[in-house]
Amino acid sequence: MTGLFPRDRVEVAPGAVHVPEWLSVERQQELVAACREWARGPVPLRHTQLPGGGVMSVRTVCLGWHWQPYRYARTADDVNGARVADVPGWLAELGRSAVTEAYGGAGAAGWARDAGGAGDAGGAGAVYAPDAALVNFYDGDARMSMHQDKEERCAAPVVSLSLGDTCVFRFGNPEGRGRPYTDVRLASGDLFVFGGPSRFAYHGVPKVLPETADPAVGLRGGRLNITLRETGLGGPDRRG
């Protein structure tokens, strides 16, 4: 649960913005319900198998484009061959609002240019067009190692929404998995956007803090993370 005192908005690195408590409890409830529906299919929630034979501890369901290491496709050939569900319009609109929220303050014009907003921070949100969403579920033992989101052919920002238990989110640099990095606590309802110079920064989740969620959100244990992305892949049948 969030504490008694409000947490401040922070620019963790150039172009990487943490906005605590951005989502209302009611909006969080709606997102949790939507995640439950998406997890039922047409492509169900699954542990992703890595090329070396390992299996990711988080479980994932994708919208718009199906991600598997290290490419995108419209169909989930590593699960059941079905075409993934589309990114709903209301979720894309939420992503646009998130980018506007993150980059609407002073000093955001440079990141807005990288987001396609021609230097206008409000315009960055207006033109943001996420066509893929990854929904990750972390139980108490799940982790995410340091990695880059780099399968996309577009440098538009990544939008991250947190639901349920708080996690330690480790946000690093574009050069490698090691230091310097910053550990940020992402609680339910928090927004994190990274673009501009931080778009390809390494990041991961070394820890989930059990029993930290507000029961009102409707998630009984664990953490959900929704990340929205522009793939830059174009037409409906193109593969990454």
Rank of each mutant, 00 (worst) to 15 (best):
F171P: 02
E93D: 09
A108D: 09
S97P: 05
L163Q: 01
R143H: 14
R185L: 14
G164H: 06
A108K: 02
P180A: 08
C154D: 13
A124E: 12
R96E: 06
L161S: 07
V84E: 10
D139S: 05
G196Q: 04
V184M: 13
F169A: 05
D114I: 03
G119D: 01
A121W: 02
L163T: 06
D141C: 15
D149I: 01
G105A: 15
G172Q: 01
E175Q: 12
P180T: 09
N136L: 09
G122E: 12
R170G: 04
G164W: 02
G105L: 11
T100Q: 15
P88M: 14
D139N: 00
A187W: 05
D86C: 11
C167M: 13
M146V: 08
V127G: 03
A124W: 05
T182L: 07
P174Q: 05
M144L: 15
G123P: 07
D86E: 15
A126F: 04
R143F: 08
D149S: 00
T182R: 13
A109E: 02
A124V: 08
T100P: 04
S188W: 00
A112I: 01
G89D: 09
N136Y: 07
G125T: 02
A108C: 14
A121G: 06
D165I: 03
G107K: 00
M144C: 09
L191W: 11
G176K: 07
R153S: 11
S145N: 12
Q148Y: 05
A142L: 08
R179H: 10
P197G: 13
A115K: 03
D131T: 12
R143A: 13
N136E: 10
G110T: 07
R177L: 05
R177G: 00
G110S: 13
F192V: 04
T182P: 05
V184I: 14
W90A: 13
G140N: 06
D86N: 12
S162G: 13
A92I: 08
A98P: 04
R199D: 01
G117W: 00
Y181C: 11
Q148W: 07
A115L: 02
L91G: 12
L161I: 08
T166V: 09
A92Y: 02
G172E: 02
R153M: 10
L134Y: 07
A82G: 12
S145P: 04
G125F: 04
F192E: 03
A108H: 06
R199V: 03
V127Q: 05
G140A: 13
G122R: 14
H147K: 10
V168L: 14
A142Y: 06
N173S: 12
H147T: 09
H147W: 10
G178V: 03
V127A: 06
G196Y: 00
D114E: 14
V193Y: 05
G123M: 15
Y181S: 15
T100N: 11
D141K: 15
L163M: 08
F200L: 10
V135M: 04
Y138N: 10
D149W: 00
A124I: 07
P174G: 03
G196D: 01
V159T: 13
N136T: 07
R83G: 11
G119K: 00
V99C: 05
E151P: 01
